[in-house]
């Protein structure tokens, strides 16, 4: 375990060096969050005054929390891994006395957690403190209840695990496709739509929603966010969280099996 933790920490240390990217990213995300809230406000004023499946405040939380934790989404390739697969450097992971999948997962975990932490903190400050100060209370992020906060943290942990497993899966796929264009085109569409990043899942048509909330993407954004805003209680969320954990186990098993095959293949080609 110590080895995996050390690998993740090393990756995180490198990722935390990119401060300029974090500042620029924060600016874009804050701006983008405002625009999305305006769009939802327009919808709510014109069409969904009564009987909406979510209060407007809950939609606002959905947007801000989604922006704050954007970096956890497995919507792109791990570029460092992609380079290593292409150059064959990846095989040298086999020279370490630790499990190869574990090494890949640890690195993905760092990628999906460290940058998120440094961007989430200013986003919370912006959405919870700054917006009310300038008179935009309606667009501000509501403070959670203690239970909501605790459950959000738990669900966020599950989201990072899921995201790391998916990211590792994308990296493993590179062993077959080399350039990774397929993944870079498919993953964002799949992940942003199914996780609730584009439209909050409760606002989807009933039939679609009933399926999507049980897919492994719902655990990335929808579940943690709705726990934070109180749209879901801990009791309601428990079976959903359990389902997401089952997905995680399955994704890890799949990634592990494919990696094993990929390594043999690489080896056949003369790594």
């Amino acid at each position: 375990m110590r080895g995996y933790v050390a690998i993740a920490q090393a990756r995180a240390r490198v990722l935390l060096q990119y401060r300029a990217a974090a500042v620029a990213g924060f600016g874009t995300q804050a701006f983008w969050g405002m625009i999305r809230i305006m769009i939802f406000e327009a919808f709510y004023r014109s069409a969904m005054a009564d009987g909406a499946p979510m209060r407007f405040e809950e939609v606002v939380s959905y947007v801000w929390l989604g922006q704050a934790t954007l970096m956890t989404l497995p919507w792109n390739l791990d570029r460092e891994m992609a380079d290593e697969v292409r150059t064959g450097k990846v095989v040298y992971g086999l020279l370490r006395p630790v499990d190869l999948y574990g090494q890949w997962f640890a690195r993905a975990f760092a990628l999906r957690s460290a940058p998120m932490v440094i961007r989430a903190l200013p986003m919370f400050a912006f959405a919870m403190v700054l917006l009310p100060l300038v008179g935009l209370e309606a667009w501000a992020l509501e403070a959670p209840t203690l239970e909501g906060l605790a459950m959000w943290l738990v669900a966020l942990g599950v989201a990072i695990l899921l995201s790391s497993a998916l990211t590792t899966l994308w990296s493993v796929a590179l062993m077959w496709t080399v350039s990774g264009d397929g993944v870079t085109h498919l993953a964002p569409a799949l992940v942003t739509l199914m996780s609730g990043m584009v439209i909050p899942l409760p606002l989807l048509p009933d039939g679609v929603r009933a399926v999507v909330v049980w897919l492994p993407f719902a655990g990335l954004v929808d579940l943690p966010v709705r726990l934070f805003s109180g749209h879901l209680t801990a009791a309601e969320a428990a079976p959903m969280l359990a389902a997401q954990l089952v997905w995680w186990v399955l994704l890890v098993a799949l990634g592990r099996a494919l990696l094993g095959r990929g390594v043999r293949r690489l080896v056949v080609q003369g790594g």
Partner: peptide
């Protein structure tokens, strides 16, 4: 391997050494 390093490119040398200590237990 003379052609490629096993050290972590962006980290100070001693960090790589500490990392290897943990990986090799």
């Amino acid at each position: 391997f003379g052609q490629r390093t096993q050290l972590w490119w962006d980290l100070p040398v001693v960090d790589s050494f500490e990392l290897l200590r943990d990986i090799y237990r």
